[in-house]
Design a protein around this nucleic acid. Structure first.
Length: 155
DNA sequence: AGACCTTTGAAGAAC
DNA sequence: GTTCTTCAAAGGTCT
């Protein structure tokens, strides 16, 4: 049977992620979550709450999987090194991609989500909310000072 | 050291 | 139900 080259990503195997990667030890994390389940509370996968357990990241969506696969070739073709520039190109390519091609990545992303749910039952995207300091804080400051439009979100 | 840039999509929050 | 916000990846750039 034909297997998509990105399918190994679904396994988050050590071949694709370094031992330090949170994806490299999903089974252990899942086992830990089962142990947590016995405590009667929802398992918490937030990396900050349990220092010995790496934070579980969001599963990749279709476009992210496409980006991961195509990034290197786009970088080589255009001689680009900056991710922002590469991602702009990939965004245009993605939108120009036939629906039949896109659907392969949508299917793969769906499998990613299913596997992620199995590996990390009870995990929520909310667990990783607020881990980054975002620019909104700056906007709030700018609103206080009456300025606007330093953010890409402001058109 | 860590946020920003830049993209799309998923999911949670807010209304 | 709709809209807004955050985070996934990535690596050069900027503070």
């Amino acid at each position: 049977s034909s297997v998509h080259p990105l399918v190994p990503l679904l396994l988050y195997s050590d071949r694709h992620f370094p031992p330090s990667s949170p994806y490299s030890q999903p089974i252990r994390a899942a086992a830990a979550s089962r142990a947590d389940a016995h405590s009667g509370t929802r398992p918490c996968y937030h990396g900050n709450t349990v220092t010995s357990r790496p934070a579980v990241k969001k599963p990749l969506n279709a476009f992210m999987l496409y980006m991961k696969e195509m990034r290197q070739s786009v970088a080589q073709e255009g001689g680009q090194r900056e991710s922002a520039a590469i991602n702009r190109i990939l965004g245009r390519r993605w939108n120009a991609l036939p629906r039949s091609e896109q659907s392969k990545y949508y299917d793969l992303a769906q499998k990613e989500r299913v596997l992620h749910m199995k590996l990390y039952p009870g995990w929520s995207a909310r667990d990783n909310y607020g881990k980054r300091k975002r620019k909104q804080n700056q906007n709030q400051n700018q609103q206080a000072t009456g300025s606007c439009c330093s953010s890409t979100l402001c058109l």
